[in-house]
Computed example of a mutant assay.
Amino acid sequence: MKQRKNTILTYPIILEVLVWILYVLMYKYSYHLEHDYFPPQMGQNFPYPILCLYACCSSLYLIFYYRYLVPKLLSKKRYTWLLGLSFVYIVILGTWNNRLTAYFFSLVSSMPEKAYFHALQQGYLDWNLITTDTIAFLAVGISIFSYRNEISRRKMETEHLKLQMQVLKAQLQPHFLFNALNGIYALSLNHPKDTSSSILLLSQLMHYILHDAAREEVPLKEELHFMNSYFAFERLRFPQATIHLQINDVDDTLTIPPLLFLPLIENSFKHGKQTAIDQAEIKANVALNEEGWLTFRIANERLPLSKLSTTKKSGIGLSNLRKRLERYYPDQHHLQVDQTENHYIAEFKIKIR
């Protein structure tokens, strides 16, 4: 299953950085520079750099506004409160913040910057900066709120999907055990000497299902080992049948979700011709091509349709498999089940690399 890696460069972070660079450090600097206190300085591309520092320091109080206040009020849908507190925060608090910052800058600056900072201490309302501050940092706050909402929604979806997968696995385990116990019961009647071996194999299979397969993904080699053990279990049940498993060149360092093969294998052995006639054949094949598609194909002989009970159904196995493939490999899987009068053929493909 492919997962997207987390990255620190989220949209709100990028927008915040751009606002501080383009708006605070560049626009506000040039806005202060345009006042009559500052005569042109020929040959200098960046005159009066202390104005840029002042623009940055006088805007620091807005960090709490857009990172906490705006997302908090939006999450609670307090829109009227947001408008009122934005006015109080930016117009009233912002004015006093600018006066206080200008006072400290006037203590460490010289003319003509000192005269300009003295003028800023008068506390006049600069509606141009008030408007642009509100638009710029309210936009950042809204983007942070939207991003957090999206992360929360995706987290809830992930938890819901995990719960669904736990339910599917909980259904799969008793389904497998029920079929296996039926097989051991039939084996004890027909071939009692092989019953102990089949019980040992069953215990190994159940250990894998209950413990190893509890993980989200397992190494492909472990899943193939489980498949080999399952086929060995079925050979004990049907010693006269031809049961063949071929595993072609497969990169066993890859990982896949556990028990993907099991529903198709179970169906083949449950509804195969060997349940009624000793001479029957089941063939399975696992292969990985150069494009990264893992293919599993299993085919079994079946009795003519007229001799089969029409009430038999595949149960929850195929339904679970379809849900799991859609969950783990959306748009990167293919499942096909074909039935003829004498054969049952099932195949799925998944893109695992």
Score class of each variant (00 low, 15 high):
residue 189 L to K: 15
residue 19 V to H: 02
residue 171 Q to C: 00
residue 95 T to Q: 14
residue 163 L to T: 15
residue 260 L to A: 06
residue 311 T to R: 11
residue 289 N to T: 03
residue 182 N to T: 09
residue 161 L to H: 07
residue 153 R to G: 00
residue 307 K to I: 00
residue 57 C to G: 04
residue 46 F to A: 06
residue 169 K to V: 00
residue 340 T to H: 02
residue 187 L to K: 08
residue 187 L to F: 01
residue 202 L to Q: 06
residue 73 L to N: 04
residue 9 L to S: 07
residue 143 S to N: 03
residue 201 L to A: 05
residue 230 Y to P: 00
residue 124 Y to T: 13
residue 152 S to A: 15
residue 138 L to D: 02
residue 321 L to Q: 07
residue 221 K to Q: 10
residue 10 T to E: 07
residue 211 H to I: 15
residue 350 I to W: 04
residue 214 A to N: 07
residue 79 Y to W: 13
residue 159 E to Q: 11
residue 268 S to C: 12
residue 300 N to K: 01
residue 341 E to M: 04
residue 294 L to S: 04
residue 150 E to Y: 09
residue 65 Y to I: 02
residue 276 A to D: 10
residue 295 T to K: 11
residue 44 Q to F: 12
residue 232 A to D: 15
residue 353 R to A: 11
residue 183 G to Q: 12
residue 56 C to Q: 08
residue 79 Y to C: 06
residue 277 I to P: 00
residue 84 G to L: 15
residue 195 T to Q: 08
residue 278 D to A: 14
residue 7 T to N: 13
residue 126 D to F: 04
residue 168 L to R: 00
residue 353 R to P: 00
residue 245 L to K: 07
residue 9 L to D: 07
residue 6 N to L: 13
residue 301 E to A: 06
residue 131 T to K: 12
residue 13 I to W: 13
residue 256 I to Q: 10
residue 100 L to M: 10
residue 292 G to W: 09
residue 286 V to L: 06
residue 120 L to H: 05
residue 231 F to V: 07
residue 153 R to S: 10
residue 4 R to F: 12
residue 196 S to D: 13
residue 339 Q to M: 05
residue 53 L to R: 07
residue 217 E to P: 05
residue 320 N to R: 01
residue 166 Q to H: 10
residue 239 P to S: 03
residue 164 Q to Y: 02
residue 187 L to N: 11
residue 83 L to S: 08
residue 306 S to V: 12
residue 246 Q to V: 12
residue 334 H to I: 01
residue 104 F to N: 00
residue 39 P to W: 02
residue 111 M to G: 07
residue 276 A to L: 09
residue 74 L to D: 01
residue 7 T to F: 12
residue 284 A to D: 05
residue 96 W to L: 11
residue 229 S to D: 15
residue 277 I to N: 07
residue 344 Y to C: 11
residue 107 L to G: 00
residue 258 P to F: 01
residue 118 H to Y: 14
residue 51 L to G: 01
residue 314 S to E: 12
residue 14 I to C: 08
residue 50 I to S: 06
residue 200 L to I: 13
residue 30 S to K: 14
residue 161 L to P: 03
residue 249 D to E: 15
residue 276 A to W: 02
residue 141 G to Y: 05
